[in-house]
Simulated assay, not measured.
Amino acid sequence: MPRFTRKAKIVAASATAAVMVTAGLAAYALYPERTAPADARADAIAAGKKLVDVQPRPGGARSALPDGPPVDCEKAKCIALTFDAGPGKDTPALLDHLQKEKVPATFFLLGKHHVVKYPAVVKRLFDEGHEVANHTWSHPRLDKLKRAEIREELKLTQDAIAKITGEKPTLMRPPQGRINDDVTSVSKELGLAQILWSATAKDYSTTDSELIKKRILKQSSRDGIILLHDIYDGTVPAVPGIVAELKKRGYTFVTVSQLIAPAKPNPGEVYKP
């Protein structure tokens, strides 16, 4: 994925835009501004904000959260592990491994056929300290919908998650990363920051766990956000290898909200490393 400076205006000539479309990157031309997690942190520190524990819940005995004080990503080599479109049948096995390794993650959950089908899994990942976020109700391209339809897609999932956990998410991830002004406006209205990514395995296109691991490790970088899906057969088996190698490389796993702390996610804002 291309990297952009903080809140940089995208001004592309038609020829460049054509290349982007051909490369499958058209989504990144749909919104003019985005904020890198490191820049959000820096701005908050400059404004005098202090590091606080922004994790969703302490988690208890089976917490996936590491012991000790909150992680300071200005000092630590942080990376955020995120999963889209679940929970699914393999999510409990994933949670077992994350708990064993004390690795927190952010889960962008789908409402229809997922949150409503696996409420106990949603409750478990919340109780174990993972960050619970919104990935719409039925996974449409939000930029193709009317404002009322966008609101319904996000609000249905907000309400379904809150019914299980007692809290509404503060983060959302738009399907395919597709965003426009209406998506941003509705997200702001519902109190949702928009979270993109910097590393993806395209695990929807392969069941090869080794390939998934290889793709993620190649793209991983400090302050990065990893995108995986816990609903595909090759993904959960790839996670132990990804976690082990990134730990060996000195990375500390954090939730998305931890990654930007002491800043807090700003509703409507787009975050991308």
Rank of each mutant, 00 (worst) to 15 (best):
219 Q>Y: 09
252 T>C: 13
196 L>P: 00
233 D>A: 15
204 Y>M: 08
185 S>L: 15
203 D>K: 05
259 L>I: 14
226 I>A: 12
222 R>E: 10
227 L>F: 09
256 V>M: 15
193 A>F: 00
187 S>L: 12
236 V>P: 03
222 R>A: 15
212 I>V: 10
228 L>Q: 06
226 I>S: 10
248 K>T: 09
249 R>S: 07
252 T>S: 14
244 A>Q: 11
195 I>N: 13
255 T>R: 12
221 S>C: 13
228 L>M: 13
230 D>H: 13
191 G>S: 09
185 S>T: 14
233 D>F: 06
218 K>L: 03
198 S>F: 03
203 D>G: 09
214 K>Q: 13
256 V>P: 10
203 D>F: 05
198 S>D: 04
219 Q>R: 13
238 A>Y: 02
250 G>W: 06
219 Q>V: 07
219 Q>M: 12
225 I>A: 10
230 D>S: 03
198 S>Y: 02
238 A>I: 08
240 P>L: 14
235 T>N: 06
201 A>S: 14
191 G>M: 09
254 V>K: 05
197 W>L: 10
246 L>S: 08
180 N>P: 10
206 T>A: 06
205 S>Q: 14
194 Q>E: 04
250 G>K: 02
261 A>Y: 03
237 P>L: 11
261 A>I: 04
213 K>W: 10
247 K>A: 11
255 T>F: 09
260 I>K: 04
228 L>K: 11
237 P>I: 10
209 S>Q: 12
250 G>H: 05
197 W>P: 05
221 S>K: 15
233 D>K: 15
244 A>T: 14
245 E>P: 02
221 S>E: 12
241 G>L: 00
224 G>V: 03
190 L>C: 06
183 V>R: 12
182 D>R: 15
217 L>N: 06
263 A>G: 10
201 A>D: 04
202 K>S: 11
185 S>R: 15
248 K>V: 03
186 V>E: 01
251 Y>D: 00
187 S>E: 02
260 I>N: 04
220 S>P: 00
210 E>P: 00
215 R>K: 15
204 Y>C: 02
186 V>C: 08
246 L>Y: 07
221 S>M: 14
184 T>E: 10
243 V>P: 07
225 I>N: 03
217 L>V: 01
216 I>C: 03
208 D>F: 07
231 I>T: 08
186 V>N: 06
248 K>F: 04
212 I>E: 07
237 P>A: 08
240 P>K: 14
216 I>M: 05
231 I>W: 00
258 Q>T: 01
196 L>M: 08
210 E>G: 14
228 L>T: 13
227 L>I: 09
259 L>M: 10
256 V>Q: 02
212 I>C: 06
206 T>N: 09
240 P>V: 11
239 V>D: 03
